[in-house]
Structure formats: C-alpha cells, structure tokens
C-alpha cells in the first residue's frame, strides 16, 4: 500500500512540467527515504534525478519499496487537472497496475480522483558517486534561463568558463558570437538574487544548449540554480525543491572528436 499526501501539490505539477519533454517514460521509486526518479533522455546523453523526501509529505505511507513505471506525458496531463492550490495524494495498492491521483481543493469543497495505468519501463540506472567539483556557481534561476535562451538564438553550444572573475557563458554561430559574464555579486537585497562563484580551479567546458534549455524548465521550482562543473565529469544543474529535495540534471560535456 502506497499513500503519499503532498499539501503543496503544485510542486509535483512543476516537477512534471520540468521533465516531461526530456524523458518519455520513467520509473518512480518509492521507499522509506522518499519518492524518487532517475531517468535518461532517449539518447542517453542527459539524466534527470528527482528526490522528494518522505518528511516533506504531510502523510507518507510506503509499506514496501515499489517502482511505478509511468508515461510522463500522461502523468502531466492528469496533474494539469489539479489546481495550483490543491493537495495531491498518490495512492497505489500492492500489485496494482494503476496509480490514483487525488486532488483536494484547499477548502475541501472539490475532490477529484484520476486513475492512471502503470507500465513496464525498462530503464538503466546509473550509480552517481558524490564528487568534488572544480567550480560551483549559484545564481538566480531566471537569469540562467534567460542566458540559455538568449545564447541559443545565436549558437548551438555554450562554453561555460569559470575563473576567479566570475562565470562566462559564450556561444558562436553563423550570425556572430555572444559572451555573457556574470560576476560574483553578494551585495543584493535578497539572498536569492546573489551570484556566488566557488572555484577550486578554473574550468572551461562546452555543452549542447538544447539540453540546457530543457533543464531550465525546472526554473519554477526554485529561485536559484546551482551549476557544478569539473573537467572530467558531467555538469550538474540543480534546482532545490524547498524543504523536500531536489531536481538535478546531468549532461556530459562535448569533447573534440
């Protein structure tokens, strides 16, 4: 028996909107730790990792570890039927091939339930060890999304370079080149507006912008985004989900052929 009650149901709606274009089908894993997902895009180039910790749910019952295969587009269709202020409860019986989403309006005057068929999803799980990164950049998530969108109108790839001066995003294409430099800026009124650059050593890596633009669909989840870079590792683009966990995207840097 599985029963997860999420008072801030909009979080789950935002998570689905953030990942449904990158991943088609995925297994949601439920354990005592929480509700999680790890899935790669169809080309196995980008990976999404979601964790919603059990403590973040108002009610969390998961009698045994369970993996539920879902089509994310279909799940997003169902969650779109929930209001932004609704409480969302996920329910599944042991051995059932369906999951039920229950939506309660804040005043309890409207209660809906939607039952969705589960599916067998054959997925490859990767072990991602904790790593020390050469540089970690924290910046407003809307600023990062703006930069990725702007640069993708000029070129297909972005070079992210971190030095002690700050972080530089560069691209080039048929019509010209573009460079955006964000300097460390901690003298802001609100902490979420700060740009913080932690650098152990300078790093410069090239990434496909179309994946970055996909990752920025996570922007509504958090005011800030953290970009962790190392020369021998995939970049990690992380959106913290307040008091619950995180949505992380991984992408290997492009390399010379």
């Amino acid at each position: 028996m599985l029963e997860l009650r999420l008072v801030q149901g909009s979080l789950l709606k935002k998570v689905l909107e953030a990942i449904k274009d990158l991943v088609t089908d995925a297994n949601f894993d439920c354990s005592a730790t929480g509700f999680s997902l790890q899935a790669m895009d169809s080309s196995h180039v980008a990976l999404v990792s979601l964790l919603l910790r059990s403590e973040g749910f108002e009610h969390y019952r998961c009698d045994r570890n369970i993996s539920m295969g879902m089509n994310l587009n279909n799940m997003a269709k169902m969650l779109k039927c929930a209001g932004n202020d609704d409480i969302i409860t996920l329910k599944a019986d042991d051995g059932s091939d369906t999951v039920t989403f229950m939506f309660e309006s804040p005043t309890q005057d409207k209660i809906s339930d939607f039952e969705m068929k589960l599916m067998d999803v054959d997925s490859e799980h990767l072990g991602i060890p904790e790593a020390e990164y050469h540089a970690i950049v924290r910046m407003p998530s809307t600023e990062f999304a703006r930069i990725c969108k702007d640069l993708s109108s000029i070129g297909d790839t972005v070079v992210i370079s971190v030095t002690k001066e700050g972080v530089k995003f560069s691209t080039s294409g048929d019509i010209g080149t573009a460079n955006v430099v964000c300097r460390q800026n901690t003298t802001v009124d609100k902490p979420e507006d700060a740009t913080i650059v932690e650098m152990n050593e300078p790093v410069s890596l090239t990434f496909a912008l179309r994946y970055f633009n996909s990752f920025t669909k996570g922007t509504p989840l958090s005011n800030t985004v953290t970009i962790s870079l190392s020369s021998e590792l995939p970049v990690v683009v992380e959106y913290k989900i307040a008091e619950m966990g995180h949505l992380r995207f991984y992408l290997a840097p492009k390399i010379e052929e």
Partner: peptide, 14 residues
C-alpha cells in the same frame, strides 16, 4: 561542434 559522449561513459550501470 564536438562529440557528445553518453553518460555511461562517466558513470557505471547499477
């Protein structure tokens, strides 16, 4: 534009 490696080139399957 460079070669795009697969993630399993970096992480092991579990």
């Amino acid at each position: 534009e460079g070669f795009q490696p697969l993630l399993k080139n970096y992480y092991n399957s579990i």
